[in-house]
Design a protein around this nucleic acid. Structure first.
Length: 493
RNA sequence: GGUUCCUUGGCCGAGUGGCUAGGCACCGGUCUGCAAAACCGUCUACGGCGGUUCGAAUCCGCCAGGAACCUCCA
């Protein structure tokens, strides 16, 4: 296996050639959602970013096991180590069983991801289904002396750990700073130091989600699930761990400490972090309450939205920025993406209908090869999807000029161009054509529209403008867009 | 306050020492029964000040503005 992918590793803050631990196998873990509400635009970023990585790794021939967890326990409402479990709170408010809340939002999350054409991960473990593994993991850390029990809870001893290892190596922090800057929180008296984090938390009497353990009836700390489940499914050391930049500290830092504490080894070779989506320059997030859910985007049902945006528009919008840059939401930007995507996909549709012509004396063969190489280079250069897209637009220009009769294309070149679009647009960028997005009954429906437009063409030939405009206006009203071409018509919904 | 990062044309957004990315919008033209699309053309920017260099949007310093993290967050 030839290693050709370069990725930016947060650990040393530079791009590195990706070399798997056990080629051709690649283990990849990404922090998934906490299922206590609908997914918002921010959640689409890591899902799509690491979907591109998943697709790229498979394209390169690796055998990828992609684990993306569902957090359904252990996330606390207010303070790090006290307060009410988010799932339990929601359950109390809606008078539901906690697992009912989890199932409901998990189903909705899956539906949304499917609409965004995000491939399902290989394994999607739930934290609540891995309590035993988490308890065993905590035991190992305790046995190795990196944690202590206090009043039924177990805390990681950061100061002791830091004497031998480096707590803060991922986030670039050091514990002296942390001592000065960590806020005083409730329940801190149980801990030796304010920066110690909970591995296991004793449940207060009103806490519903609880499990027995050697230390107390309680629940695992938030950072525990990823360590335990990552280790279970990918081994003590695996290749890639991804997630949002906001998880860098403390979550991922704690994961490193936990795995070193339990196994003596660092769990992850390459840490990857996607940047945030902002709204009015501020991070879109649950806590700020400034989020717009993906469903709201799809239906346009949010006061800040001037229209609905299709799942593919959202996907394209995200892919038009590099994953390590912030990207600012605005209707203007989204509308520009919508138009751009339309241009790209119409170009693709035209390409599929193109007829080969004389092998003209143009340099199409070299041009197509060049674009293909450039697209691949950009993708393998730390997933530079905006550059991939820019080359695809160059190809669209070529397609349009052929469709316009300004150039001809040989059968071999046409096939090469079709293969290139199939590979980059569909397989790697995961942008769906209309027939895919609309599903099975598309063919019959397509024929019906075609028939109508054939009739309009007849009317036009007879200079019956009333009939032809009538058909066009009616279809437009139903949401279709009709375009006349040199020798016929094009349409889309 | 600490740490890290960012500032590109009307808007979005790549690039990171020399070779006008790309998309959207605008304007002009070709085509067209009309409209749309397509095609051709126009607009050509890198927060400010200094430094390094033959050459800087790209490297260094200072200043200004903004963000993320330091508390749950994708």
């Amino acid at each position: 296996m030839e290693n050709r992918l370069t990725i930016y590793n947060t650990l040393d803050r530079k791009k590195e050639l990706f070399v798997p631990l056990h080629s051709p196998f690649v283990g990849m873990y990404v922090c998934g959602p906490t299922v206590y509400g609908d997914a918002h635009l921010g959640h689409a970023r890591p899902a799509i970013t690491f979907d591109i990585l998943f697709r790229t790794l498979k394209y390169l021939g690796y055998k990828v096991r992609y684990v993306r967890n569902i957090t359904d326990v252990g996330h606390l409402e207010n303070d790090a180590d006290s307060g009410e479990d988010k799932i339990a709170k929601k359950a109390r408010l809606e008078r539901l069983e906690p697992m009912e809340v989890v199932q409901y939002y998990m189903n909705r999350y899956h539906k949304t991801m499917e609409l965004l054409n995000v491939l399902p991960p290989s394994i999607e473990p739930q934290a609540s289904g891995h309590i035993i593994e988490q308890i065993e993991f905590i035991k190992r850390i305790l046995d190795n002396g990196w944690a202590y029990v206090s009043n039924g809870s177990v805390y990681f001893d950061v100061e002791k750990y830091n004497e031998q290892y480096n707590y803060g190596k991922l986030s670039g922090r050091n514990i002296d700073e942390l001592l000065e800057t960590t806020r005083e929180l409730d329940g801190q008296e149980e801990k030796k130091n304010s920066f110690d984090f909970a591995l296991w938390k004793k449940a207060s009497p009103e806490h519903i989600m609880r499990w027995p353990s050697p230390w107390s009836d309680g629940f695992p700390g938030w950072h525990m699930e990823c360590s335990a489940m990552g280790t279970k499914y990918l081994g003590e050391q695996f290749d890639i761990h991804g997630g949002g930049m906001d998880l860098l500290f403390p979550h991922h830092e704690c994961e490193i400490a936990q795995s070193v504490g339990a196994t003596g080894k660092e769990c992850v070779r390459y840490w990857m972090h996607n940047n945030m989506i902002t709204i009015n320059g501020k991070k879109m997030g649950k806590s700020l309450g400034n989020f717009i859910t993906l469903d709201e985007f799809f239906t346009g049902s949010h006061p800040m939205l001037t229209q609905a945006y299709s799942p593919m528009t959202i996907r394209f919008f995200i892919l038009q920025a590099h994953y390590r840059s912030t990207v600012d939401f605005s209707n203007e930007a989204l509308m520009a993406s919508e138009k751009g995507l339309e241009r790209l996909m119409e170009g693709y549709a035209r390409l599929l209908k193109l007829q080969p012509g004389a092998d003209a004396n143009n340099n199409l063969t070299e041009e197509i090869q060049r674009l293909e190489v450039k697209c691949e280079e950009a993708l393998l250069d730390d997933l530079n999807t905006p550059i991939v897209i820019s080359y695809l637009f160059e190809a669209v220009k070529t397609i349009n000029s052929i469709a316009d009769g300004k150039a001809t294309i040989s059968a071999a070149d046409l096939q090469a161009l079709k293969d290139m679009f199939k590979l980059f647009v569909e397989d790697l960028m995961g942008l769906q054509t209309q027939s895919e997005a609309t599903g099975g009954n598309y063919e019959a429906y397509k024929k019906a529209i075609d028939l109508l437009l054939e009739m309009r063409l007849q009317a036009k030939a007879n200079k019956d403008w009333t009939t032809s405009d009538n058909i066009r206006n009616q279809l437009t009203e139903f949401g279709f867009q009709i375009k006349d071409t040199k020798d016929g018509f094009e349409w889309n919904l």
